[in-house]
């Protein structure tokens, strides 16, 4: 079986995978990083969004072997500090403050997508831009209202970081 090595959340990792192993499977099944979720099989829902070499991508549509040598950040790599003194990323904090999550299943992908959005579009995002940029992430609980508020606040808060 082929091997693949990459950096995930700052750590070097490696594993034996099949050709057909998806990046999301590698993360969830090999590395037990189960914060990245699978919500569909047609790359629409965005629950599996991670950052690959600094860019937001859907990890359910990327082969693990294609990520040889890549730098991957998942939802588990966003907050800082240890288990006892976790410091949430400003975007995570904004989702908490603005009740931008209910069941929490789409949330990791939403947040990774939101952070990517800020990288691409900057910190001052208006409602329309945020809604447009969230096209690749589906939520069934929140009606998006509080997610949009959270992204707006999180984007502004990321300025200081």
């Amino acid at each position: 079986m082929p091997t693949v090595a990459m950096t995930v959340n700052g750590k070097s990792v490696a594993g034996n995978v099949e050709g057909r192993t998806l990046l999301v499977q590698f993360l969830r099944e090999h590395l037990q990083l189960t914060g990245t979720h699978v919500g569909c099989d047609t790359s629409q829902c965005g629950c599996c969004t991670i950052h690959l070499n600094g860019k937001g991508v859907k990890s359910c549509a990327v082969l693990a072997l294609a990520c040889e040598g890549a730098d991957v950040v998942t939802i588990e790599g966003l907050a800082t500090g240890g288990t006892a003194d976790v410091k949430l990323h400003p975007m995570q904090e904004a989702f908490r403050e603005h009740h931008g999550l209910q069941c929490g299943f789409c949330t990791p992908g939403m947040i990774m997508s939101a952070v990517d959005m800020v990288k691409r579009k900057g910190h001052d995002l208006d409602e329309k831009a945020i809604r447009k940029q969230l096209e690749g992430n589906i939520c069934r609980c929140t009606g998006y209202h509080n997610i949009v508020l959270a992204v707006q606040a999180g984007a502004a808060a990321m300025k200081g970081n």
Partner: peptide
């Protein structure tokens, strides 16, 4: 095309 995440790839 698609959505921002699809456009990145």
């Amino acid at each position: 095309i698609g959505d921002p995440l699809v456009r990145n790839r």
